[in-house]
Nucleic acid binder design. Structure first.
Lengths: 119, 119
DNA sequence: AGTTTAAATCAATTTTTTTTGATAAATAAA
DNA sequence: TTTATTTATCAAAAAAAATTGATTTAAACT
């Protein structure tokens, strides 16, 4: 059989390989998707958007996860800018960064990780 | 300082921990986000949606990646249902699963991984 | 002041993912 | 029919991420 050559290959000029700004775009989204690529963190996000604010010790009970483990996962979400932290005294309160989530995910999916009013 | 207790905590009943269907939802999306959580795979997706169809050997040149490595990453995308495969003779042609991408990602982001007409 | 609590961080271990080069299966081309 | 090409898969090694329990820091209580 003869190799099939799509029309677009004949039309497009192959500048596809040199994309200087795309590289850093991919890095940015890699980080964000890495943060989402874990059941536990998806669960955390889902819980966070049901409370409008939760401290680590409460979340730890809710999700039944040791504190150091939870802090580790919260940090990953925080570094990806998917959640935000506010410290009051010794407590750290975390909230979903709705704006960022909306920018990243489809409306259907956002509902899973967005305050309960939506869906 | 006294511990701050958000109003929603006083209102919501704490059924948050027992979510039998949510568990499998998280599993499903974990897999999809894992597939997206890699620069190389994002690059592959981006290239794939510029061609409407590419075989492994062409992609391998375009992205400058050894064949076995590329096949490995294509399989991860395929298993997550983010791309589709069609075999013609010895060649495998891959295309972006636009429907799935649209369901998952925001319109802004979809543009990065969707045929060039959009943005 | 002394004790307790909340949360972040650390180092060591375990688990998962990725890379690499080789091989196998199937088709194409000579 | 032989040879070359395309792609998937395999096993071993390397790299990255997650888990665990302990420690540290800081603030809150008594």
């Amino acid at each position: 059989m003869e190799k099939f050559i799509p029309i677009t290959d004949l039309i497009n000029d192959n500048n596809a390989t040199k994309e200087p700004p795309l590289q850093s775009t991919f890095e940015k989204y890699e980080k964000k998707f890495k943060a989402l690529a874990d059941q536990k963190r998806l669960h955390i996000l889902n819980l966070l958007c049901q409370q409008d604010s939760s401290c680590v010790c409460d979340l730890s009970e809710l999700i039944d996860m040791p504190q150091s483990k939870l802090s580790y996962h919260l940090k990953i979400l925080l570094d990806a800018n998917l959640i935000q932290k506010e410290t009051k005294g010794t407590w750290s309160y975390y909230t979903v960064n709705t704006k960022e989530i909306n920018h990243l995910l489809s409306p259907e999916l956002c509902c899973l990780f967005r305050p309960s009013n939506c869906c």
